[in-house]
Design a binder for these strands. Structure first.
Length: 192
DNA sequence: AGGAAGATCTACT
DNA sequence: GTAGATCTTCCTA
């Protein structure tokens, strides 16, 4: 289990490619001396000025400028009371990111359940707002790299997921023709 | 200063 | 399946 953080180069590709390949990787949140871990089971890709559903669509603002910046850094922003956890991903001089929509809890489940009390385990992290509460994600993480082994949030490498599905993105007002949501087939922690 | 929108969630019918 | 809550950010005045 000596998995290392995914390198910067992993994120220096198109957001849709990164979103697909992030499935099965391990998301680690270090907080209060504990490591809260989950396997990524659902993601969505967002592009830049050409993507009407993207936070980058209406141009660079203070809150979204990390989408133009170095890949492999967190982009955290608020919608409807919840913090959305993204990682910046794009080709050189590009814009984009990947939204973490669901993880399967692995470590630190007790602490996650304190952060977000639920009656069944499946409700703990099966949604972008849900997983942020469970993992203690706030805007303090915005701009931090996920490639630093000792950082407050890291993505560790793991074998690729072979049995995956794609669909249109969920909850967006105006989507692109491409299917940009990716999830592990049959996994119980996928939202929806 | 005020209103509206939003990549959501929960509860209820 | 639909409605309402909730809060950060943006846009207009």
């Amino acid at each position: 289990m000596a998995s290392k953080p995914l390198p910067l180069g992993f994120y220096e590709r198109r957001p849709d490619v990164v979103a697909r390949e992030l499935l099965g990787k391990t998301l680690v949140r270090r907080i209060g001396g504990e490591a809260l871990e989950g396997v990524v089971v659902e993601t969505e890709a967002y592009f830049g000025l050409e993507d009407p559903a993207s936070r980058a669509y209406r141009g660079m603002k203070e809150y979204n400028r990390v989408m133009w910046g170095e890949p492999g850094r967190l982009f955290v922003y608020n919608v409807h009371k919840y913090w959305m956890l993204n990682v910046v991903a794009h080709e050189p001089d590009g814009v984009g990111g990947v939204l973490f929509r669901a993880v399967e809890p692995r470590e630190g489940i007790g602490r996650m359940a304190e952060n977000r009390p639920v009656s069944s385990l499946r409700e703990l992290t099966s949604g972008p707002g849900r997983l942020s509460v469970a993992l203690g994600v706030t805007r303090e993480l915005n701009g931090l790299p996920v490639t630093d082994p000792g950082g407050p949030m890291v993505v560790l490498d793991a074998p690729p997921v072979l049995d995956l599905c794609a669909s249109h993105r969920i909850g967006v007002k105006e989507d692109l023709p491409e299917e940009l949501r990716f999830y592990v087939r049959g996994n119980g922690f996928v939202s929806g």
